[in-house]
Amino acid sequence: MQITVCIKQVPGTSEVDIDEKTGVLKREGIDSKMNPYDLYAIETALRLKAEQGAKVNVLTMGPPQAEAVIREAYMMGADKGFLMTDKKFAGADVLATAYALSQGIRTLGDSDLLICGKMTTDGDTAQVGPEIAEYLQIPHVANVRRIHEINEKAIVVEMNMAESVEIQEVQLPCLITVEKDIYPPRLPSFKLKLKTAGRPVKNVTFKDLKDRNEMHYGLNGSPTQVLRIFPPEPNKTNEHWEGSGEALSKRLAEKLHELKFI
């Protein structure tokens, strides 16, 4: 069984600034880290590896320094890492990202199961997983919070819905996106760090893909365009109250009365 996990390097903090003049994100000097939701995806794959003897691939797209998240996945126990890096992939929106990843996944041979984290902390869209599944023409289940069983043909998962939990049996190959807390992710191991220090990370570039039409990738392949980015507007009405606890609570009670809440 082959499992492929899609991971992403994201800014280490969400405190990003915008250059007021150019409207461009200031990204220099910001630490990077693995998207926290991807840790759950890797953990899920590693549990299945231990149970089923599966091979676990990790795949990411990004600049050369995104290799760091592959290294981290190696330290957790992933077997092979693939880094999709090419100028032609730059500027991709959700659709172009999902398309490039689906092309990258195809170069790894047949994966029985694809696992993505629920969402990333920089884009917050939770859309890339389902779009990859569409491009690969396989079923997907989002918001998986538990795996009941897996065999060569199918996986039984629990999908978290607003008011219910749906238990679905899905034929393989398929893609799942997992919720946090499906399993607590293990910490990177120092032993594995030493053991995998020399393990290569395979670069996957535009040339390696089956579809080499540039118009399908990066900025060219992105139907959505960002017109402008700007900081959120702070609220206009803003009264500041100071005083003793008693004075403040009196004023609060009066305000709640005035607003007809009491």
């Binding site: 969400s14 990003v16 902390t121 980015i229 900081p231």
Partner: peptide, 10 residues
């Protein structure tokens, strides 16, 4: 985007 730190017009 970015956890609500910026707004994007798309």
């Amino acid at each position: 985007a970015y956890g609500g730190n910026i707004m994007a017009h798309i």
